Every structure is written in structure tokens, then in C-alpha cells.
Amino acid sequence: MTKESARKRLQDFYFLLFTFGSGLFYFCFYLVSITFALGMTVIFVGIPLLACVLRTTHTFVQYERIQTKVYTDISIEPILTRTNSGRDKWMKAREAILNSSNWRAVFWLMQKFFIGVISLICAVILYIAPLVIIVTPILFQHLDIYLWGFAVDSWEKAICVMLAGCILVWINTRIGNSLVQIVGMYTHSMFKAIKR
């Protein structure tokens, strides 16, 4: 494995972890803040709060665009920033709340949580599990290890498992890169949906 391919594998692994982390953040942030803002609309505090929450979508989708470019090399056209007109705060809040692209962005960003969970599972299976399988000859002497339905209790089995782990590392490099490209295409689709 060359230094460049090892760096690419590590970069793909980081991107899958970032996908989980950002998806979890977006889901929790919008679920809690929108629910709280809607609950506070009874005393009119929630309307400007909801408008502020919806204005964050532009920042977050731009962050997603940058992350996708850095990790997947997929270029996405930026969404133009909105100009602040001289209208009063209630008109600005009304405009932010009634802007359908803000709500579409919230939907796509919250949906990223589910993609993030899948990314986390795949990151563990594709990048961590093969490395653990490779060190089986060291671990089987100290731990009871069961892989693929049989106990690893001899050097012969441990070496076979280690070789299988090396093969998995080679195969998972291609699968991991494809998965990262799929997540990048999700961000591309999100931008197309928001711009409509």
C-alpha cells in the first residue's frame, strides 16, 4: 500500500465519520430548536427564534459543500447569499419562515442523520474490522475470538484469519471510496433540491 493510497483511505474514513457527526448534529439541532421555537410562538418569542434557526441553513449547506469538495473532489455551485434589505425584523422573520428553500434545506440536513448512521456502520466494517482481524494472531492467545462462526484457537486459524483480513483491506479500499462518492452525490442532490 503506497503512502498516497493510505492517505486516501484515512481521508475516506474521516469523511464517513464527519458524515455521522454532522448528521447527528443537524438532526438534534433542528429537532430541538424548531420544536422549541414552535412552542414559543404562543408568546411571539418563537417567531424571531424560528427565523434565526432557519437562517442557519445557508451556513450549514455551505459547510457541506466545502466538506464534499475537500473529501470527494465533487464540485458544487455555491448558493448565493441573501442580501439584507432595510425592512423591519418582523418582515425579515416572515420572509425567512415562508422561504421554502430554508425548509427544504432543513429536511435534507436532518435526513443526513440516517446517512450518517449508515456511514458510521460502514466505517467500522470497512476500516476498523479488517485491522482487528489482521491482528488476530496477537489477540487469540489472550482472548476467546470467534469469527465467521468458528473459534480462532490455533496459529493456523489465526494466520488464515489474518490473510482474510489483508484481502478485506484491499477489497474495502474500493468499496469505501465508492461509498464516499455516494455520500458526496447526496450533498450534490441536496444543493439541486434547495436551489429549486
Rank of each mutant, 00 (worst) to 15 (best):
K3R: 14
A6W: 03
A6Q: 12
A6E: 12
R7L: 10
K8A: 15
K8E: 15
L10F: 13
L10S: 14
L16G: 04
F18Q: 01
F18S: 00
V32I: 11
S33M: 06
I34W: 01
T35Y: 03
T35V: 11
F36P: 00
M40L: 14
F44C: 11
I47C: 02
L50V: 05
L54F: 00
R55P: 09
R55E: 15
R55V: 15
T59R: 01
V61Q: 05
V61M: 09
Y63P: 06
E64F: 10
R65C: 07
T68E: 04
T72A: 10
E77F: 02
I79C: 01
L80C: 04
T81H: 08
T83A: 10
W90I: 04
W90M: 08
K92H: 10
E95F: 06
S100H: 13
W108Q: 00
M110S: 07
Q111C: 14
G116E: 00
L120N: 03
I125S: 01
L126S: 03
I128M: 10
A129H: 06
I133R: 07
I138K: 11
L139W: 10
F140C: 07
D144Q: 14
W148G: 11
D153R: 15
W155E: 07
I159W: 13
V161P: 05
M162L: 06
R174K: 09
I175H: 03
L179D: 04
Q181P: 07
K192M: 13
K195Y: 01
K195I: 01
K195R: 14
